[in-house]
Amino acid sequence: MMVDLRYESDSTCVARLEGDLDVTVASAVREALSKAIERGCRNVVLDLSGVAYVDSSCIALLVWLNRVLEPRDGRLVLAGASPDVGRILELSGLLRVAPVVSTASDEHEALSSLEIAPTAQEPSWEQGLSFPADTAQLATARQRVIELIAGLDIPESTMFDIRVAVGEALANAMRHGSPGGRSDTVGVVVEVYEDRVAIVVSDQGCGFDGTLPESSDLYAASGRGVMFMRALMDRVEFTTCEGGGTSVRLEKHVDRRTSIAHRP
């Protein structure tokens, strides 16, 4: 196994793995990544395009990375996995429960997803919506949000990610963030920037900071919504609204080669 580690910035590194990732080499890979994390790297791209075989030690390595990077507000992006390796990752269930782990088709896409800087510039345009906190209206609310960005030439796969994440945020706001039931209102603001789309969903509940109880139970009755949001979007931030309630901000990077700044 060859490990080619390079730093894209003080906080982001790329580890390109070549060969079989099994129990005989997993500890060496972990040691190399541990040194990078100690140096300050909190966003890790694992380029798996050169990996033909993985075993359970690979899953253990990824579990360790998730545990180490999560308190650092970091990200782990698995890039370029072959269909066979991807199937093993899927069978493990890790991608469904690890909050900091996501996948990308290649290294370029992985790094692009990590390039979102703190939102400083003004959006090219924004629009607000409001909905009654009625889950019977969930599909309609979800569709109205998606219709606002439907004309921005966003790839279909990216639109699907946004649809699922927004749906989870709306469902949580209606089910858990609306103590007054249908009399409460869920607010949505869609912001469009040159390189990203942001959707902010706000409720009138008692507040939630996005922290889930520690659990490895794949069959838990709740908690997967936040995991999906974090896995599908490039940034997820929970804040407490002034006067109460929770606001969750979902951001998705859009390839800078395609301008999305125009209003549809």
Rank of each mutant, 00 (worst) to 15 (best):
residue 6 R to V: 08
residue 6 R to C: 04
residue 6 R to W: 06
residue 6 R to M: 04
residue 6 R to T: 12
residue 6 R to D: 07
residue 7 Y to M: 09
residue 7 Y to P: 01
residue 7 Y to G: 03
residue 7 Y to A: 15
residue 8 E to Q: 03
residue 8 E to C: 02
residue 8 E to S: 00
residue 8 E to V: 04
residue 9 S to I: 10
residue 9 S to K: 05
residue 9 S to F: 12
residue 9 S to A: 13
residue 9 S to L: 11
residue 9 S to C: 13
residue 9 S to V: 07
residue 9 S to E: 12
residue 10 D to T: 09
residue 11 S to R: 09
residue 11 S to C: 06
residue 11 S to A: 14
residue 12 T to A: 07
residue 12 T to M: 05
residue 12 T to I: 13
residue 13 C to H: 00
residue 13 C to N: 04
residue 14 V to H: 02
residue 14 V to E: 03
residue 15 A to Q: 05
residue 15 A to K: 03
residue 15 A to F: 04
residue 15 A to N: 05
residue 15 A to D: 05
residue 16 R to P: 06
residue 17 L to E: 14
residue 17 L to C: 12
residue 17 L to V: 11
residue 17 L to T: 11
residue 17 L to N: 08
residue 18 E to P: 00
residue 18 E to F: 06
residue 18 E to C: 08
residue 18 E to Q: 12
residue 18 E to G: 06
residue 19 G to Y: 13
residue 19 G to P: 11
residue 19 G to F: 08
residue 20 D to S: 13
residue 21 L to G: 06
residue 21 L to I: 12
residue 21 L to F: 14
residue 21 L to M: 15
residue 21 L to N: 09
residue 21 L to R: 05
residue 23 V to D: 11
residue 23 V to Q: 13
residue 23 V to H: 15
residue 23 V to K: 08
residue 23 V to L: 15
residue 24 T to H: 07
residue 24 T to N: 12
residue 25 V to D: 12
residue 26 A to T: 04
residue 26 A to Q: 05
residue 26 A to F: 01
residue 28 A to M: 15
residue 28 A to L: 13
residue 28 A to N: 12
residue 29 V to I: 13
residue 29 V to W: 03
residue 29 V to M: 07
residue 30 R to M: 15
residue 30 R to V: 09
residue 30 R to T: 11
residue 30 R to W: 15
residue 31 E to L: 08
residue 31 E to Y: 02
residue 31 E to H: 08
residue 31 E to N: 08
residue 31 E to A: 14
residue 31 E to F: 05
residue 32 A to N: 09
residue 32 A to F: 02
residue 33 L to M: 00
residue 33 L to W: 00
residue 33 L to C: 02
residue 33 L to S: 03
residue 34 S to D: 14
residue 34 S to C: 07
residue 34 S to G: 12
residue 34 S to N: 12
residue 35 K to G: 04
residue 35 K to L: 10
residue 35 K to P: 00
residue 35 K to W: 03
residue 36 A to H: 07
residue 36 A to M: 10
residue 37 I to N: 02
residue 38 E to I: 12
residue 38 E to W: 07
residue 38 E to P: 01
residue 38 E to V: 14
residue 38 E to S: 14
residue 39 R to M: 04
residue 39 R to K: 13
residue 39 R to L: 05
residue 39 R to W: 01
residue 40 G to V: 02
residue 40 G to W: 01
residue 41 C to R: 00
residue 41 C to F: 01
residue 42 R to Q: 02
residue 42 R to T: 01
residue 43 N to A: 04
residue 43 N to D: 13
residue 44 V to A: 03
residue 45 V to D: 07
residue 45 V to R: 05
residue 45 V to L: 09
residue 46 L to R: 02
residue 46 L to C: 06
residue 46 L to I: 03
residue 46 L to P: 06
residue 46 L to Q: 09
residue 46 L to S: 04
